[in-house]
Write a protein that binds this DNA or RNA. Structure first.
Lengths: 350, 350
DNA sequence: TCGTGGCGGGAGAGCGCTCTATGCCCTCGG
DNA sequence: CCGAGGGCATAGAGCGCTCTCCCGCCACGA
């Protein structure tokens, strides 16, 4: 706070060289005489110099910052009050999924000393703010995690020609890179597990139908059950939340009290499924086996701990960051997609 | 991506005025002839101009960005692997507390069109990175949430004269503003609830002893119980995690099988307490009443839903952001502290 | 000896913005 | 009718950095 921060000029004077030389040493470009390098380094040390990023990015047109955008519903009528926005953020992070995304992103970014700016785009104004932010050059690009299938943000970003990478393939094709999971295989793994346990009467709590991932998980599950000789699988639609899992299971149980196995399309709903089963006097896994999806932290803390289809979220998030980095650096110009394979993690629930 | 982004110069040419005039219109300073204002606005519209933030902050020395730092353990020997870092982030966000902090911060910041950069400072290198980041002028200041009592970051920030605001009063006095909760009163509320329900044998799962908040919650609880005629309250120390709640409750139950009421110093541990009680055949709240702390999202999703001492985390986080804003703008020069009052939220567990 | 090429360093032109100093012009009082 | 003064716009100087020239020096070959 006292005085002014030292500048390149100050360091140069201290070291008895020119600005350009100091810049070269700082950025490690071109050959600089080792002796002079040392001089400069000493001068930097002595002055406590730290390059001013605003000045640097003014000329390089790179910021060392990416936007990590959690994008919400489609229409979003009216403006978002502070209250609603708070709720959105809290809801988003209530799903352990996002913590893992953040972890993976930061894990990749930090060694490159770039950092994520957290943004929420749950309303039209918020979306505009994101676009404005990127167009102003505040960040080099965006990592987008949509919570809603017909999120308009990806299209807006693509249209504006802003570098962006999506988590999950968008329903409507968009010229952006994305990472995704082989959801069908995930459904298959869940079915195989239930079949292997000898469950014959099985049901499933799917994710929202509008979400492509839900459909694929369901398809993988159903196809595999059919192949195993069980062509009929009752389905109740959930919304990836605990409450919706509770409601869906209650519904299923009312119509199919003899169910022996349940596949829930994420762990939060699986937790709800377990709650309902226990309340109705069913033991998990003795009476009913339950398989979740994600292998998130609730899978481990749930009682009983959930057998779950693992989604390598951290790796996927890191891959997003990598793709974005490549786009920003111009190493990659065409949209690409990276697909990850799920894996079954066996615990106690199935 | 195509061509160059329009600059002030372009807009000025388009509108037939000078750069300075456009700048004034954009920033809304000084009187500008309304007719010219319109001209300029039209030109801005037509060119799709967006002010370049790097250039702006180069001269204003403000960035419109704050660092939101989640700061970890004290020593942290050795460097942090990407794995460990991932785990840290996931662990941090596993506690719904942080989602609420983020929500509150974003809620305050967004109307001021500033945004938080998420940083983790769980190792010495990561801490240095935070300092470097701030000293480089990447952000105007830092909002710090420590997960560990002897976190050295606050002192480092204060020493470097960087604007920062802490969540919770630091153990060692530091010349930084902070927000906090009246934890003692929170403990009192919990005790009053249990006393009102007629619980006589009560026990408590405290937070880590090194954390001042834990001690204050405990003190408020004990003092109030004592005043109610119950001077002896068994305590087991937990670590604010679900597992630690489980362990602590198991321990308490072994020594005091006749317990009628339990106060856990946060909801995550309260959830663990409920799990253990159920496994040991105790009904909540019929046999044992349980009061949690925080009123976080797990309080609502726990079975049974937890009666909990509400901590207005969103408001506290917003207050942090406000304090920081005032420091950055120079409206406030001396460290200040803002204290919030807890509130009892009654659900089913007590 | 001089020419040539390559390496290491310096000079200086911006990057896009803000803001102070300056100057124009119009109005109003004397 | 002239001078003073105030409202509004402009000119231009940076903010701190990068990067493209350019130049000097030395080693080497002719």
């Amino acid at each position: 706070m006292n005085r002014h921060a030292p500048t390149l000029e100050d360091v140069a004077r201290e070291a008895g060289v020119s600005r350009a030389t100091v810049s070269r040493v700082v950025n490690g470009v071109r050959n600089v005489d080792p002796a002079i390098q040392d001089q400069v380094r000493v001068a930097i040390e002595r002055t406590g110099y730290a390059p001013n990023r605003a000045a640097r990015s003014l000329v390089t047109r790179r910021t060392g910052t990416v936007a990590l955008v959690v994008s919400g519903a489609g229409d979003g009528t009216g403006d978002t009050s502070e209250e609603e926005q708070n709720a959105f953020a809290a809801r988003v992070f209530a799903d352990p999924f996002f913590g893992r995304v953040v972890g993976g992103v930061v894990g990749f970014l930090r060694p490159r000393s770039t950092h994520p700016v957290l943004m929420f785009a749950e309303s039209p104004e918020a979306r505009q703010e994101v676009l404005r932010y990127l167009r102003q050059g505040n960040a080099d690009g965006a990592l987008v995690v949509s919570t809603h299938p017909d999120d308009p943000l990806p299209a807006l970003l693509a249209e504006a020609g802003l570098p962006a990478v999506l988590f999950a393939r968008p329903v409507r094709p968009v010229a952006l890179s994305h990472v995704d999971l082989a959801h069908w295989d995930g459904g298959r793994l869940a079915a195989e597990r239930l079949l292997a346990r000898g469950c014959r009467k099985v049901a499933t709590v799917s994710g929202p139908w509008a979400v492509a991932a839900s459909q694929e998980r369901l398809a993988g599950f159903r196809d595999t059950m059919a192949r195993g000789g069980h062509p009929y699988v009752p389905v109740a639609e959930g919304g990836f939340t605990l409450d919706s899992g509770v409601a869906a299971m209650a519904e299923l149980l009312a119509e199919h009290p003899d169910v022996e196995g349940v596949f829930a399309a994420n762990d939060l709903m699986a937790q709800g499924v377990c709650q309902v089963l226990r309340e109705r006097g069913r033991r998990v896994p003795d009476d009913v086996a339950v398989v979740g999806f994600d292998d998130s932290s609730v899978a481990a803390t749930c009682r009983p701990p959930l057998t779950s289809v693992r989604q390598p979220v951290e790796d996927m998030a890191a891959a997003m960051a990598r793709l974005l980095d490549e786009h920003v650096r111009g190493l990659r110009t065409e949209p690409a997609s990276v697909l990850f394979e799920p894996e079954l993690v066996v615990r106690e629930s199935a």
